[in-house]
Every structure is written in structure tokens, then in C-alpha cells.
């Protein structure tokens, strides 16, 4: 490992600084969602469409993908090749299920007459959750790339920082969803 003043690897520090920047990105989206809440002039409104049981399931899937992600990192650090492969792939698959759930939700909403430009709810909802979904998609591609590396035996304990950095990104995307799930879905009635 290269010498650094802080003892933190450069890649890891870069990811944390990037996550700091991403906080502001999602804060802008969340602030906009909240300021425009209840200001739609025409329906459908959130309470007509949001399917809490369905989204609870996909939320649970994403939460569990954070568990498989830390287990993947732990396997890579221990040099457990089989564990690395299994948990990286599992994390990516859980991510794909989450994005798939979002696709089903979006097309259901569109079918109910909530096009992108329908009202303020549709504008803010689709862009906020869409930005998040795009982040999950990037994460899935990243994890699958790492999975290919493990299949070729090119991801040993010496390069565990690569998995650690991908993991930080993945967990951050997860905590953003923890906030969005609460703000968009559970607070929709109040």
C-alpha cells in the first residue's frame, strides 16, 4: 500500500469525499420533493398510487443486499474465493431485483395516468427515485465487473480495497433509500 499521511488509502478517501458530494445531490432532490409535497394541481396524487406493501418488499431486498455486500468484503479480505464469488453475485442480483421492482412500479404508475409531466408529484417522484435507481444500476454494473474479476481469480486479499470502495458506494445508495422510503412512501399520508 502507498504511504499516506492519514493511513487511509487514497481510493477510500476519494470515495468518502465523493459520498459527501452525493449527500448534497440527494439533499437537493429531497428538499425539492418536500417543498412541492401536496402542491400538485391535478391527480393522480401519491395516496392514490403508492403501494406500501410492494415497496416494503423491495426495500427489504435492498437492505439485505447491504448485508451480502459486507459479507462479500469480509470474504475477499479473508481470501475466501468461493465466498467472494457468491456474495458479490448475490449482492448484484438483489440490486437487480430492486431496480426491477422500480421498473414495475414506474410502468404501473404510467398505466394509471401518471406520466412524467402529469403534475408536480410525478415530476419530483420520477426524478428523485430515478436518480436513485440510476445509482443502483451503476452499482450493479460495478459489482458484476468485480464478480467477473473474482471468477478469473484476480481479486485476492491484496486488492480488497477495490471491493471496500465499491461497498462504500453500495451502502451509501442503500442509506439514501432508507431516507427516500421514509420521506416519499411512509410520510405520504401526513
Amino acid at each position: 500500500m502507498e504511504r499516506t499521511n492519514t493511513g487511509v488509502p487514497n481510493e477510500k478517501m476519494l470515495m468518502w469525499a465523493f459520498i459527501g458530494s452525493e449527500c448534497m445531490l440527494f439533499a437537493s432532490l429531497i428538499a425539492t420533493y418536500l417543498t412541492y409535497r401536496g402542491r400538485s394541481l391535478v391527480g393522480p396524487y401519491p395516496e392514490d398510487l403508492l403501494n406500501i406493501p410492494f415497496i416494503t418488499v423491495t426495500t427489504f431486498v435492498l437492505l439485505m443486499s447491504s448485508l451480502t455486500m459486507v459479507l462479500a468484503l469480509s470474504a475477499v479480505q479473508r481470501g475466501d474465493a468461493r465466498g467472494s464469488r457468491v456474495f458479490l453475485l448475490l449482492t448484484a442480483v438483489l440490486g437487480i431485483i430492486f431496480v426491477g421492482g422500480q421498473a414495475i412500479e414506474f410502468s404501473h404508475f404510467a398505466g394509471e395516468g401518471l406520466g412524467l409531466s402529469r403534475n408536480l408529484f410525478s415530476s419530483t417522484f420520477f426524478l428523485t427515485t430515478g436518480f436513485h435507481g440510476a445509482h443502483v444500476t451503476v452499482g450493479v454494473i460495478w459489482l458484476l465487473s468485480l464478480w467477473v474479476l473474482t471468477m478469473r481469480g484476480r481479486l485476492g486479499p491484496e486488492s480488497s480495497v477495490k471491493v471496500e470502495v465499491a461497498g462504500l458506494y453500495w451502502h451509501f445508495v442503500d442509506v439514501v433509500w432508507i431516507v427516500l422510503f421514509t420521506v416519499i412512501y411512509l410520510m405520504s399520508g401526513s
Binding site: G20, M24, L25, T32, S122
Partner: peptide, 25 residues
Amino acid sequence: IILAFPPFTIAIVFLLFDRMFGTLF
């Protein structure tokens, strides 16, 4: 820079969607 540019990025994305896809931001 890392804290100030993201809100601007979001604002211009909203504007892009308003102009190109008819959102109502």
C-alpha cells in the same frame, strides 16, 4: 466545489426535463 456544484447540477437537470420532457419544476 464538491458541496456547491451538486445543487446546481440538480437544478439544471430539472430545467432540462422542464424544457425537453415537459415536467413542471
